[in-house]
């Protein structure tokens, strides 16, 4: 069972996170924490010349394998998409990519990065936030 959860792709993203780093002068940025695990994620976005398309994304942070691996996967998913496309991206799309059975507690780990990215885009572009994160300037999942 533990092996199912920590399948190879998760461990690979955890150990070799994609898009890991800090971006100076990002066009959009947000950070969030999951107080339960103490997971922390910051996400930085640079837009293309059209001001809509995500040209480059980076994340930094620390936390459990699920939170860091899922954020790493998210980085690969969102490059080339527009802010409004990501605002409309259902959480299921990321969870499908993560592809492991998650308890409600670990679901928060897996969705931290997506929430932070949506908050960053909301701040920069005013894109809508899902109801559960509405009104947040800094994401704190509880």
């Amino acid at each position: 069972m533990a092996e199912d959860l920590y399948r190879e792709v998760i461990l690979d993203h955890y150990k070799n996170p994609r898009g890991h780093g800090v971006m100076e002068d990002a066009d959009a940025q947000a950070e969030g924490v999951n107080p339960l695990c103490g997971d922390e994620v910051s996400i930085y976005v640079q837009f293309a010349d059209d001001g809509e398309t995500l040209e480059e994304v980076k994340f930094s942070g620390r936390g459990c394998a699920i939170s860091q691996a899922s954020t790493s996967m998210l980085m690969e998913m969102v490059v080339g998409k527009t802010a409004s496309e990501i605002a409309g991206l259902p959480k299921e799309a990321l969870l499908e990519e993560v592809g492991i059975p998650l308890t409600p507690v670990r679901l928060k780990c897996a969705l931290l990065g997506l929430g932070v990215l949506k908050v960053a885009l909301h701040r920069a572009k005013g894109t809508p936030l899902p109801d559960e994160w509405a009104g947040l300037d800094e994401l704190e999942l509880t």
Binding site: A2, L5, C37
Partner: peptide, 22 residues
């Protein structure tokens, strides 16, 4: 190199319940 929640998750699969967190 291993986050406590990951340790606790593997332990749970062995029937061992510990706390992981702050």
């Amino acid at each position: 190199g291993i986050h406590p929640h990951d340790v606790a998750q593997v332990l749970d699969s062995e029937g061992v319940a510990i706390r992981a967190g702050h």
